[in-house]
Amino acid sequence: MNRAAMFDVDGTLVDTNHLHVTSWWEALRQAGHVVPMHAVHRAIGLPGEDLIAHLLGDDRDTDQDDALKAAHDTLYATYFERLPGFDSAAELLRTLHGSGWRVVLVTSAGSTELEALRRAIGADDAITATASADDVSEGKPAPDPVHHALDLADASAHASVFVGDSVWDMKAATRAGVTCVGVLCGGIPRRDLEEAGAGAVYQDPAELLARLDDSPFARVPQAQPTAGREQA
């Protein structure tokens, strides 16, 4: 039985949420849309098209969507070489990997952006696979990205844990039947994460690492060797 440790990236492992807020706010402003930054912040974690729909409504001029996403991507890309990983994020992934977990990143980021995020984390040796919104028909809060991550890890939902910072993360993992862990470093209040399905909430990756032995990760049984298979 494989165990999957699934992680959102933006706002969970890398301190990027407010960079996304600024980039989306400016992209929207340039297109003539006045959207409060707090509203943008609440939408971070949704795939680009869904974020735009969430902020501007379904009756918007959808012909603008591609230009808005391109403007956001261009603005955000200026930060690629200085994205800050959260303290202990890499150590957390390596600790789980070393304990037999299959670590999968579950993100809405595209390939170029994901490369920059992985550089910021600095733990490629601990990452088994990545699942992005591009790989599925629906992104978070639909369960599709989490189901895809489980497939990549060849793990079952009951033997897996998902860590994220947004309401969308918690809803996606809950709908997939996976135990949810929230972190506050993305800026979303504890109560909102708990109401969306978080079974435990930590300040950041450093606190989760420090408390790993009494976290939901500790309650998932270790894989048992298959009968007849030679043990290492």
Rank of each mutant, 00 (worst) to 15 (best):
D134Q: 11
D135A: 09
V136R: 06
V136G: 06
V136C: 09
S137M: 11
S137R: 11
S137I: 13
G139A: 09
P141K: 06
P141N: 06
P141M: 11
A142E: 10
P143N: 07
P143H: 11
P143Q: 07
P143M: 11
P143F: 13
D144T: 04
D144S: 08
P145A: 11
V146D: 02
V146W: 05
V146C: 06
H147G: 04
H147K: 07
H148L: 12
H148V: 09
A149M: 08
A149N: 03
L150G: 01
D151K: 10
D151P: 00
D151T: 15
D151G: 15
L152C: 12
D154V: 13
D154F: 10
D154S: 14
A155T: 12
A157N: 05
S160L: 12
V161H: 07
V161E: 06
V163Y: 05
V163I: 15
G164T: 11
G164V: 13
D165N: 08
D165A: 07
W168L: 04
D169S: 03
D169G: 02
M170S: 01
M170P: 00
M170Y: 05
K171G: 02
K171A: 15
K171Y: 09
A172M: 07
T174Y: 08
R175I: 12
A176W: 08
V178H: 03
C180N: 03
C180K: 02
C180G: 09
C180P: 01
G182R: 00
G182A: 07
V183D: 01
L184Q: 02
C185E: 02
C185P: 00
G186Y: 07
G187S: 03
G187Q: 05
G187V: 09
G187H: 07
I188C: 03
I188D: 00
I188F: 13
P189A: 15
P189D: 15
P189L: 12
R191Y: 10
R191F: 13
D192V: 14
L193R: 02
E194G: 00
E195I: 14
A196C: 09
G197Y: 11
G197C: 10
G197R: 05
A198P: 00
A200V: 12
A200S: 14
Y202L: 11
D204K: 04
P205Q: 06
P205K: 07
P205I: 14
A206C: 04
E207W: 08
E207C: 05
E207I: 12
L208Y: 04
L208F: 07
L209H: 12
L209G: 01
A210V: 11
A210L: 06
R211D: 14
S215N: 02
F217R: 01
F217N: 01
A218G: 01
A218N: 02
R219L: 13
V220I: 15
P221S: 08
Q222P: 03
Q222A: 14
Q222D: 12
Q222K: 07
